[in-house]
Amino acid sequence: MRRMGIAFSASVAFAVGVLTLISLLLGDHPELYGNVAGAEIWAGLLALPAAVLLRLVTLTVAVTIVIGIVNLLHVHAGRGLRRQFYSIVMIASFAFTMYWYLTRQGDTSLLAAVQVPIESALAALLFLSMAQGGARVMKKRADIWGLLFVTVMVIVLLGTLPLPALAPLREWSDWLMDIPVGAGARAILLGIALGTVVAGVRILLGQDRSYRG
């Protein structure tokens, strides 16, 4: 019975995946059909499944925010019962914000007064964390790559300073960012894109583990 369930879910995933892919690639493009009679109608019909399914996905993803909120409350309610201070504050803040929003006709001033300053403060802290991390690179990676990383970082940082004495460094910094860093970034992005395609095709074909049970 379990095997039948797995086969069924994999088949549904395969059928929907291939249908969506074909619909996205061939739909709404009558020029791909050459001189076939009624190409416009066929292209329009073929575009329909992708349009419907993608709209369904958008709706489903919007609904998952409720799953997230329930998960957040469930996790922190459990912790709150164990008297963990931050979780109690989280639950109390959630309840107060809901009360505020509902009793003041959708007033979002709490967001501007509390959330935004806190996030900004954390973003400033992020800069300190990154500077600290940069300083610790040679401790973590005492090899040629760590040294190269630190050297490039120092040249680029110094190159951004508006001092006339550092003008030659600015040229080095620009060259580093345009040529080696640009090439490396493209290579990494190409690798990620290829991996994404392989993983995507595996999901579309119903070969992902979540369909195999």
């Binding site: 991390g133 990494i188 290829l194 993983a199």
Partner: peptide, 14 residues
């Protein structure tokens, strides 16, 4: 790369 104990790069995540 700078801060983690172990790091994987780009497509190694796949």
């Amino acid at each position: 790369f700078a801060m983690a104990d172990e790091v994987l790069i780009g497509e190694q995540m796949f």
